[in-house]
Amino acid sequence: MKRFIYFIIVIGLLWIGYLYVSRQGLVSGFIGGEPEAVGNSGGEGTAAAAGNAKDGSGADNLLLISRIARQSRLYTAEYRIHKIVTHEDLLKLKGQIFGIDFEHRFNIGDRRIAIPIEVTLKAYVDFSTFSARNVEQRGSFIHITLPDPKIALTASKVDHQGIRQFTSLWRSAYTDEEMSEFTRQGVESVLAEVPDMRLLHTARDCAAQTLIPLLTSLGYQEDHIIITFREGVGTESIEGLEKIKEIRHEVH
């Protein structure tokens, strides 16, 4: 009986020690340490801010770095794009036997996930290079040549409540890291489809619709206002795609 009580005490002490070590682990150690500087590049103004903050729930937050830049962009249209990102994690055997390709999927131990995402794109005209050379006035007529419109990814959002995943008994659920990777791939595929959506045509219309009321309020007649765009407007420029490529490059 005495030995059994000693045994219980030793097990209890070991368990308390394990809990103590696990709570002093990687996460709390990192939060107490020096903040990591991410994405610092020389913009017009760079402000680094770092520190510890605690909210009411007792969780810690680490502030990283921010970059500030002066802009002159007139956003003329906003596009919301919805996509359901899917992934089937089937065990697959593929290869080649004596020059013959084969592929076989095993329906054992599979898992599947569907992640709804919403991507927000905005079309803008960059006015930082706009000057008197872009304006031509003849009598009561005014002709404005605007720079090429561009499209920027301004936000992407995962509908966490809408995520559905199905996992077989002997497989673990999808991790947060895996889901982040699928979201990244999903947004990348949306941006790859943007040139086919012909968004810049509506962007040009919207830019004209924004500027015409301004010019009419200054006294110009609506039918005396001509707004054109520079040549080469058909080549779609997507800022977000470049960003995503940069991220993927960093990841790999």
Binding site: G39, L64, S66, A69, T76, E78, S189, M197
Partner: peptide
């Protein structure tokens, strides 16, 4: 990818702040 909505805007941006928080 489904284009859900197109909205006309008239927003002029003068300052952008790239930020990351953990």
């Amino acid at each position: 990818a489904v284009l859900q909505s197109i909205e006309r805007l008239g927003q002029w941006e003068f300052l952008s702040i790239d930020d990351e928080v953990m």
